[in-house]
C-alpha cells in the first residue's frame, strides 16, 4: 500500500514538473505570444476587409484613450480619495505643490501638457531613467497612496496613452547624448 501511494505521489510530482517545465520553456522561447501575434495578423490583415481596417484601429484607439481619461479621473487608482486630476485638472496643474509622504519635501506640481514628450527621463525616486508609464506609477504610489499598475496592463497603457495625448503638438525632447 505505501509503495502504491508512493508511486502515485511520484507520478503526480513528475507530471507537475513536466507541465511547469514545458510552459516555462514555451514562455522562454516566446512561442505563445508569437503565435498570438500571427493570429492577430490574420484577423486584421487577412480576414478583415481592407476598407474596414482603418475604422477598426481608430475605434480601438479611441476606446483606449477614453479608458485612459476615465482612469485619470478615477479615485480607484489610489486610496486617499485623490485622482490624477486632483493635482492635474484637465491635464494642467493646480499651480501648487505636492508633499512627498513621510517627508518635508514639497515638489511643484508640473503641467502634463508637453510632459510625455520629455520621457524616458531621469527621476529621483527611482534614481534612474524611467518611462512615462513608470512615472504614472510613481504618482499613483506617492500621491494617491495606490498600487503600481502592471506595465503591460490595459490600464497602464490606456493611462499612458491619455497622458501622452495631452502633449499632442509638442516637440519630443529627450535629453540628447552630447
Amino acid at each position: 500500500m505505501p509503495r502504491k501511494r508512493l508511486l502515485l505521489v511520484s507520478i503526480v510530482v513528475m507530471a507537475g514538473f513536466l507541465i511547469s517545465g514545458c510552459s516555462m520553456m514555451a514562455k522562454m522561447m516566446g512561442m505563445g505570444d508569437l503565435m498570438g501575434a500571427m493570429q492577430n495578423m490574420d484577423k486584421v490583415m487577412k480576414d478583415m476587409p481592407a476598407g474596414e481596417r482603418m475604422a477598426y484601429m481608430n475605434k480601438i484607439q479611441a476606446e483606449t484613450l477614453r479608458q485612459g481619461e476615465s482612469l485619470f479621473k478615477s479615485a480607484d487608482l489610489g486610496k486617499n480619495g485623490q485622482n490624477c486630476s486632483s493635482c492635474h485638472p484637465g491635464g494642467a496643474t493646480t499651480g501648487g505643490e505636492a508633499q512627498i509622504p513621510m517627508r518635508d519635501y514639497r515638489v511643484p506640481i508640473p503641467t502634463l501638457v508637453g510632459a510625455s514628450a520629455t520621457f524616458p527621463k531621469y527621476k529621483a525616486p527611482n534614481d534612474r531613467v524611467i518611462t512615462l508609464q513608470e512615472m504614472n506609477n510613481n504618482c499613483i504610489k506617492m500621491f494617491l497612496g495606490g498600487k503600481a499598475l502592471e506595465l503591460n496592463s490595459d490600464e497602464a497603457i490606456a493611462l499612458g496613452m491619455y497622458i501622452s495625448s495631452l502633449s499632442n503638438g509638442e516637440s519630443v525632447n529627450v535629453q540628447a547624448a552630447k
Partner: peptide, 25 residues
Amino acid sequence: LDSPESYFLAQYVTSLSNGDDVTVG
C-alpha cells in the same frame, strides 16, 4: 518592461524623434 535594457533602448529610440511633434495614435 521594467528591465534596464528595455528603458535604455526606449530612451535611445525616443531620442531619434527629438524635435518631432507628438501626435499620439
